[in-house]
Amino acid sequence: MEDNPWQTLGVQTVYDNRWIRVEHREVLHPGGGRGIYGLVHFKNRAIGVIPLEADGSTYLVGQYRYALGQYSWELPEGGGPLEEDPLEAARRELREETGLEADHWQLLLKMHLSNSVTDEVSLIYLARGLRSGPAQPEETERLRVERLPFEEVYRRVVAGEITDAITVAGVLRVQALRLAGEL
């Protein structure tokens, strides 16, 4: 393991809400000079779920993403507080957004979403043995759910039609497992 070549000289919180904290940091960088660093600390994990039916189909959720100013198709996903069991957060997000519940869960990936300025961590689960129920979206969400063949979702990822990082990484991981005969 490498030693940390950065030295933090001071930290000032410039913004704080229930989801993020933004810090201005005075640092000594690896070259030895003084500098600044902006850091966004996330108070939730990003959780994504690939619900996979026995016939190989999966589900995408469509919604307007305010930060991007555009509509986005993505896996069922959301935030789970750091103190919450991530699997419970995944179960909740799947149920809220699609109404689905699953008997079998597998952690597919743990990744950092933007490690240059944030500490956000994402976990992506595979859910199988699905049962349908009523969706329970949050009041801030207006969602559209589509069931599609996995091959179509993979095609959309490869074509650049789906750009959500969690969805891209999760779909590519499932495709790699399928090609290796591990799914």
Score class of each variant (00 low, 15 high):
residue 7 Q to S: 08
residue 8 T to D: 03
residue 9 L to F: 03
residue 9 L to K: 14
residue 9 L to E: 13
residue 9 L to H: 12
residue 11 V to H: 08
residue 12 Q to H: 06
residue 12 Q to S: 05
residue 14 V to W: 00
residue 14 V to M: 09
residue 15 Y to P: 02
residue 16 D to R: 14
residue 17 N to R: 03
residue 18 R to L: 10
residue 18 R to I: 03
residue 21 R to K: 14
residue 24 H to Q: 15
residue 24 H to P: 00
residue 26 E to H: 10
residue 26 E to D: 13
residue 27 V to Q: 05
residue 27 V to W: 05
residue 28 L to K: 15
residue 29 H to I: 01
residue 29 H to F: 07
residue 29 H to K: 12
residue 30 P to V: 04
residue 30 P to D: 08
residue 30 P to Q: 10
residue 32 G to V: 02
residue 33 G to F: 08
residue 33 G to M: 05
residue 35 G to I: 03
residue 35 G to F: 02
residue 35 G to S: 09
residue 35 G to W: 04
residue 35 G to D: 09
residue 36 I to C: 03
residue 36 I to R: 09
residue 37 Y to G: 01
residue 37 Y to D: 04
residue 37 Y to E: 11
residue 37 Y to V: 01
residue 38 G to I: 07
residue 38 G to R: 12
residue 38 G to D: 04
residue 39 L to V: 11
residue 43 K to I: 02
residue 44 N to Y: 15
residue 45 R to M: 09
residue 45 R to E: 08
residue 45 R to Y: 15
residue 46 A to R: 11
residue 46 A to W: 13
residue 47 I to L: 08
residue 48 G to F: 10
residue 48 G to D: 07
residue 53 E to H: 12
residue 54 A to P: 01
residue 55 D to V: 06
residue 55 D to C: 01
residue 56 G to E: 04
residue 57 S to N: 12
residue 57 S to T: 15
residue 58 T to D: 03
residue 58 T to L: 06
residue 60 L to S: 00
residue 61 V to F: 04
residue 61 V to A: 01
residue 61 V to C: 03
residue 62 G to V: 02
residue 62 G to W: 02
residue 63 Q to M: 09
residue 65 R to K: 09
residue 65 R to L: 13
residue 69 G to R: 13
residue 69 G to S: 12
residue 72 S to M: 14
residue 73 W to Y: 11
residue 73 W to T: 00
residue 75 L to H: 01
residue 76 P to Q: 05
residue 78 G to Q: 07
residue 78 G to D: 06
residue 78 G to K: 04
residue 80 G to K: 03
residue 81 P to A: 15
residue 81 P to S: 11
residue 81 P to K: 12
residue 82 L to Y: 12
residue 82 L to P: 07
residue 83 E to S: 13
residue 84 E to I: 10
residue 85 D to A: 08
residue 86 P to F: 15
residue 87 L to M: 09
residue 87 L to E: 12
residue 87 L to R: 11
residue 88 E to Q: 14
residue 89 A to L: 05
residue 89 A to S: 15
residue 90 A to F: 07
residue 90 A to L: 07
residue 91 R to E: 13
residue 93 E to Y: 00
residue 94 L to F: 11
residue 95 R to E: 13
residue 96 E to C: 04
residue 96 E to A: 07
residue 97 E to L: 03
residue 97 E to T: 01
residue 98 T to Q: 01
residue 100 L to D: 06
residue 100 L to R: 08
residue 101 E to I: 13
residue 102 A to M: 06
residue 103 D to R: 15
residue 103 D to T: 11
residue 107 L to A: 07
residue 107 L to C: 05
residue 108 L to S: 04
residue 108 L to G: 02
residue 110 K to T: 13
residue 110 K to F: 00
residue 110 K to R: 13
residue 111 M to S: 08
residue 114 S to K: 06
residue 114 S to R: 09
residue 114 S to G: 03
residue 116 S to K: 05
residue 116 S to R: 09
residue 119 D to T: 12
residue 121 V to I: 15
residue 121 V to C: 07
residue 122 S to L: 00
residue 124 I to W: 01
residue 128 R to H: 00
residue 129 G to F: 06
residue 129 G to N: 02
residue 130 L to N: 08
residue 132 S to P: 05
residue 132 S to K: 10
